[in-house]
């Protein structure tokens, strides 16, 4: 996903904590989770939690919706699955 772009949709902070809500978009070009590049467009959400101290990030709880990403690209090698209505 060499063209992956992360859009920041919302920033919520208090104390030393910041939450970032993001929407990531890209093309599945290279191998990912053992699945070869499919050329399929991918799009998924994320809400990460950051702790900061002295102006620097000390912890991130990464929380992108990789389940949705894997579903999109694993369907790519087979006959395209119908979208859930």
């Amino acid at each position: 996903m060499s063209d992956l772009v992360i859009d920041v949709e919302d920033v919520v902070g208090a104390g030393n904590i910041v939450f970032l809500r993001t929407s990531s978009h890209g093309t599945h070009t290279g191998e990912l989770f053992g699945i070869p590049g499919s050329g399929r467009a991918v799009s998924y959400s994320g809400i990460a939690t950051y702790y900061l101290e002295d102006g620097k990030i000390t912890h991130e709880w990464f929380n992108d919706d990789l389940f949705a990403l894997m579903q999109t690209i694993s369907a790519a090698g087979d006959t395209p699955l119908p979208r859930a209505s």
Binding site: G15, N16, L20, L52, E53, G55, K56, I57
Partner: peptide, 17 residues
């Protein structure tokens, strides 16, 4: 962690993230 209540720190933290 140390939880700052300084609003300027919160703004700076949001900008950093």
């Amino acid at each position: 962690i140390v939880r700052s209540t300084d609003p300027e720190v919160v703004v700076a933290n949001k900008r950093t993230a």
